[in-house]
Nucleic acid binder design. Sequence first.
DNA 1: ATAACCGGGGACAACGTTGTCTCGCAGGTG
DNA 2: CACCTGCGAGACAACGTTGTCCCCGGTTAT
Lengths: 344, 344
Amino acid sequence: MLSESAQPKDRPTMRDVAALAGVGIKTVSRVVNGVSTVAPELVERVRSAADKLGYRPNLTAANLRRSGGRTNTIGLLLEDIGNPFSSAVFRAVEDYARDRSVLVLAASLDENPQRERELTRKLIDRRVDGLIIMPAAQDYRYVLSEQQAGMSFVFVDRLPTPLLADAIVSDNRGGARTAVEHLLRTRRRRVAYFGDDMAIPTAAERFAGFTDALAAAGLVPDDRMVRHGLRTAEQARRAANDLLAGDPPEAIFTSQNLVTVGVVEALHERDLQHDVAIVGFDDIPFAAVLQPGITVMAQDPAAVGRKAVSRLFDRMNGDQSPPAVHTVLTRLIVRGSGELRLPE
Amino acid sequence: MLSESAQPKDRPTMRDVAALAGVGIKTVSRVVNGVSTVAPELVERVRSAADKLGYRPNLTAANLRRSGGRTNTIGLLLEDIGNPFSSAVFRAVEDYARDRSVLVLAASLDENPQRERELTRKLIDRRVDGLIIMPAAQDYRYVLSEQQAGMSFVFVDRLPTPLLADAIVSDNRGGARTAVEHLLRTRRRRVAYFGDDMAIPTAAERFAGFTDALAAAGLVPDDRMVRHGLRTAEQARRAANDLLAGDPPEAIFTSQNLVTVGVVEALHERDLQHDVAIVGFDDIPFAAVLQPGITVMAQDPAAVGRKAVSRLFDRMNGDQSPPAVHTVLTRLIVRGSGELRLPE
DNA sequence: ATAACCGGGGACAACGTTGTCTCGCAGGTG
DNA sequence: CACCTGCGAGACAACGTTGTCCCCGGTTAT
């Protein structure tokens, strides 16, 4: 009864366009989808009717009916979109997907396994065509039934256990080992380790690489110079200050970018940056401007993202080969802090 | 005829669950949606049938029918997801949306107006409930007809022309002015400007703030010390080296984070970091570790994102008030480089 | 005992689109 | 001239779900 003025009136549908153009609804569908068997005159009538009404097709309805039921959407679950590694992965995924007219639904997990399960479910309920996950959880058996129902999965940055789907990971252990070997080449022997929580598989791998390198040089880690569980730059800074206050190590390996930031801050606070060598895992902005520049073992998040999304599309297109792990190599960037000469 | 083994068999639907549980399809719907009028025994039967089949509801089908037709999805078009400002905005948007069971479809525009139009359309075709756009284009009249069709828009970081929707922007002009006034407080007078392309509205605003501050001190910009159009750190580094090679300015204002990085690199290369003062717009990682620390006028991308998404949800919930501009204040972070004492 | 009532559960249509089928008409063929 | 062919266009059902309505059985009131 009420004739409200700016009522949020419904969008026009194909039916409305068809009525205005004086054609059947299916003809509108054909025009919208560019089917070539429609008479040019009708095409024109439909086009102008659609423009006049501001018609836009409803893709969710179309996907519901369309064979295969593809939604042209993929899901991307990252540790934290705000962190540079995650957002670089996102960017690579997005570029590949956009070229194929696929959009990306993304969310952050913050190391929360429960959130991971919820979000995975929500994305599946929206019928994404595939899912790229930077895992927080431990148990991936639920993936199996989803795969049987036709969902494709690719994991990045960490390996799911058991390996039920493709995974793209950095060469954490090998990269860490190479980084520490690089440090040892300066003849420094007393090497400290600062790292993230060992429950995080990548941190554990990097610590293993650290130990590998020491072992190869006939050394063993000194527990007094090993700190795990550092989650923020501030924690790392404090831990480093703590260690540096006593008998400082000759060199430091940091297993993650935030940790590197904190430790470098501590070195500068104590004016030890020219005395204690450091190599970090993960590149850091501004690393070249510092004195000395920070030598790092850089990951290649863009390569990880590209590889992940291309594997995902292969799977979505029917690739049935057994799940495999793909390792993306890391790269040592020499800037000074890892090559400090020993005095005397 | 063929009984393929691992055929990507279709997902079970409510019909399948209903058949297995021996109930009507609507009862399954009721159970799935937690309607309380179903007999406990039937709820149990339906639940176990659903689990057995690995049933997951199809949200796209549900949204199609459900009144209002909300998809519980919003679109987010950013300049570049890989850049820290964009990804911080994203993170804030995501957190707010997740609390309301809304997911985010995001994509990068890379300053490409055509891509912006295409993506806007694609997102509308998927019937997102609202759209947050960091604009690349100039002309936003198309927004009007979409708004009448019920779509909500919020712009971030830059103002659309004409102002057809809410916009959340940093206080670019005021922040830049305050930053430059801070520099002038050291009695330095010959202040250089390094900035991004003036076609980008934020860059223009910041340059205006720069001029404001000079004018208030009775100064005018010296064209020889003004460089526009710097899009990368490398370009900025070269431009700065160029200027510093001649008669160096007493102070520098940089209008954007990448530019700050490049200019700081150049200062360090020429060992002028203690002689030429600098304040940058946008915070920078590691700014505190450098000698001297880099004083910046920091933006608050998280606040921008929060404000944007909360306005968007208000609009989606029927707020009809006229479009408004919301300004998020910037904050001066003093670290040394902007407070250098003049010699003599 | 019968009518009115209530509450649980199913049949049916609808959301906006596309796949399939059929129909009508024009043109070519025997 | 009848028949077949082909092609453009619409009718209809279907995708998987939810909103609406109605029916059935049991309980309560008269």
